[in-house]
Simulated assay, not measured.
Amino acid sequence: MEESEQVKIEEKIERLWSWGAGTDGQLGTGRLQDEQIPQQLSLSLPSVSSLACGGAHVIALTSDGKVLSWGRGNSGQLGHGEVVNNLLYPKAITSLDNYFITHVSAGWGHSGFVSDSGCLFTCGDGSFGQLGHGDYASHSSPIKVSSFVDQNVAQVACGMRHSLVLLKGCLSNQVYGFGSGKRGQLGVSKDKIKSINLPKVISGFEDEEIVGISANGDHSAALSVDGHLYTWGRGFKGYEDSHLPQCLNSTSKFTKVTLGWNHALAMTGEGKVYMLGGNHLGVLSDLHNARPAKSLFDSREANLEKAPGLDGTKITDIATGAEHSVLVTENGEIKTWGWGEHGQLGLGDDGDRISPVTVNLGYDLNEAASIRVYCGSGFTFALTKP
């Protein structure tokens, strides 16, 4: 094969980079160490369509409906039928080979998988009921959640110790929660709930069609087809916890929301990005002079800040870790900010940043390349496709 032909082939394949916390093997580099600059992975992976990053493990979903996982496996969250401290390289979850998986999610120590037939499988830490099997047992292989055997599951979202489920094609009883509920993150009752181990429907969406769900830390969120953003659970900076979904009072129509432990990013269809909450490790600007805190049940638009320093640049993707954030511009730049102790900002040091800074992948991307970003608690992945 001529060199020019080899270059053309290489340009057409997807590429995967990782950086940040890596002491559990979650970066897929084969090394148990943090990385402060992006590492391009030389892995023989099938075509990867998306990733899910958890506390310290990663799940890869391929275009042909297969799943692989790596990283920390101390609670069985990798789904390989055994408990392992760490797995350095991607390994196929063979127990799901008879299913075409369409959606995956990774929590702190548990994982969720949705098939094209609408089945939900969970594995990992179940000590708070977050696996939804009616007990508090942990499992090292994906187990079908029987509560949805006659339902059609579309998405699963795994948080720190809780899970959300979105059903397909129904306007009532469409979102469910289970697991830890001490901060209201289950959204199933006004009363405080320690935990529940079976899925329970979340009220408040009777007049909305929900198309997306998100969970991280003790937070939960949902997006409607009309672009309305709902949040519940632990209150963002200056706001009380909410035990039921609350709609953000904003005229913007949101298309994606991602949650950290103390903040959230929300992106509009026009490519604008806003931030909720945050603290000194994740803020976009000085919140010490922000307006006085209000009750969660007052207008929360005052707590919604537009991401600065982007000069009107359109944003095409967003992701949030525990206390760091990542976005992709329409020009193909990856920008990060927030907590940087493990190198998760990819800037060559362990410092924090309060505004977005461009990451150098060390590789010139094709202008037409599609870039998606994903965050675990203290690490980051970038997936590029031609």
Results as ranks from 00 to 15, higher is better:
157 A>M: 12
62 T>P: 09
86 N>K: 10
27 L>F: 04
303 N>A: 15
76 G>I: 05
169 G>Y: 02
214 S>H: 06
334 I>M: 09
100 F>M: 10
260 G>D: 13
132 G>F: 01
284 L>M: 07
8 K>G: 06
13 I>R: 15
157 A>Y: 08
108 W>L: 10
211 V>A: 00
316 T>N: 04
131 L>P: 06
56 A>R: 14
83 V>I: 14
35 E>R: 03
222 A>T: 01
94 T>Q: 10
110 H>M: 00
318 I>K: 12
41 L>D: 11
33 Q>F: 03
198 L>Y: 04
104 V>A: 03
237 K>M: 07
250 S>G: 02
376 G>W: 06
78 L>C: 02
275 M>V: 14
62 T>R: 09
33 Q>H: 12
200 K>D: 00
385 K>S: 15
35 E>G: 05
313 T>N: 03
48 V>C: 11
240 E>Q: 15
266 A>N: 06
346 G>W: 04
76 G>E: 03
151 Q>H: 05
138 S>T: 06
356 P>H: 14
351 G>N: 15
221 A>V: 07
34 D>G: 00
136 Y>F: 14
367 E>R: 10
143 I>H: 09
258 T>P: 01
10 E>P: 00
318 I>H: 03
357 V>K: 11
94 T>H: 00
45 L>T: 06
321 G>V: 09
79 G>H: 10
9 I>G: 04
280 H>F: 13
184 G>A: 10
317 D>E: 10
40 Q>C: 13
213 I>W: 02
332 G>C: 03
307 A>M: 15
120 L>R: 12
124 G>F: 02
126 G>H: 00
208 E>S: 15
221 A>S: 12
234 R>K: 15
299 S>C: 05
339 W>H: 15
254 F>Q: 10
133 H>I: 02
336 T>S: 11
201 V>F: 00
278 G>Y: 13
160 M>E: 13
280 H>S: 07
72 R>D: 12
182 K>C: 10
282 G>S: 15
70 W>F: 12
41 L>P: 13
381 F>S: 01
312 G>V: 02
108 W>R: 15
157 A>H: 06
145 V>M: 08
273 V>Y: 07
155 Q>Y: 01
319 A>Q: 03
3 E>N: 10
36 Q>F: 04
238 G>S: 03
327 L>V: 09
96 L>F: 11
246 Q>S: 08
111 S>H: 03
48 V>Q: 11
304 L>G: 06
252 S>R: 12
182 K>I: 00
124 G>K: 05
143 I>M: 12
158 C>G: 01
277 G>Q: 14
312 G>W: 11
120 L>D: 00
105 S>M: 04
131 L>H: 00
283 V>E: 14
8 K>I: 11
46 P>N: 09
334 I>N: 07
191 D>H: 11
68 L>G: 06
37 I>S: 15
106 A>T: 07
94 T>R: 07
125 D>Q: 06
316 T>F: 04
26 Q>K: 07
228 H>L: 06
348 G>E: 08
